[in-house]
Amino acid sequence: MRKNKLFLTLFVSLLMLSSAAWSDDAEDNYKNYCWQCHGMTGDGMGLNVQDMSVQPRDHTSAKAMGGRSDADLFKVIKEGGLAIDKSVLMPPWRDSLSDDEIHDLVKYLRKLCQCG
């Protein structure tokens, strides 16, 4: 009986693992979602900036990033630029990233700007 229970638990766990998208590390997420606008080095000069009406934030600048709290950064990644009265060009990423992944990205941004 106990063996059956253990087998069932293992089976359900494996099923849950196979159906859920994996959590990715911050560097991979930054490359997949942020590089396109914020740039390979995070300096705000990404591939897409040429025809943008508002330039993306320079994540390497302690001056530009220092004034933003971790809570602000979390909010703007999760809910988009409009959530903190910034540009509509920054989209909400809540459907692409879990809260844990967004917290990891905030830490990653702090490393890039060497601030906070």
């Binding site: 396109q36 606008c37 591939l47 897409n48 040429q50 540009s87 509509v88 060009l89």
Partner: peptide, 20 residues
């Protein structure tokens, strides 16, 4: 573009718009 910012990543005519 203005309401939803989609042009940030997509070209709406050859040579105009985002490239990713």
């Amino acid at each position: 573009d203005k309401f939803n910012g989609c042009m940030a990543c997509h070209e709406i005519e050859p040579g105009y718009g985002g490239l990713s």
